[in-house]
Amino acid sequence: MQIVVDLTRCQGYAQCVFLAPDVFQLHGEEGLLYLPAVPDDQLERVRQAVAACPVQAILMGKGVSAGAE
């Protein structure tokens, strides 16, 4: 599973950082950096983060599969 955070919308509330600290990290006061490819053992935590984000900025989903051609 992949994630992307809409950082134009993200307000640095950091709920995601509390819920899945191995995936989301604050760089400085409010610069959010994250792992776009979610490790399998982090899926549940990231799901919680997606649900908890107050501005619904986190999208999780599959990437377009390479063999789609």
Partner: peptide
């Protein structure tokens, strides 16, 4: 922190397209 190939964009839904 992240390998460049790990940056695939997640789909909101499968657009059922020919790529």
């Amino acid at each position: 922190d992240v390998p460049a190939e790990a940056t695939a964009l997640p789909m909101r839904r499968d657009p059922d397209a020919e790529w």
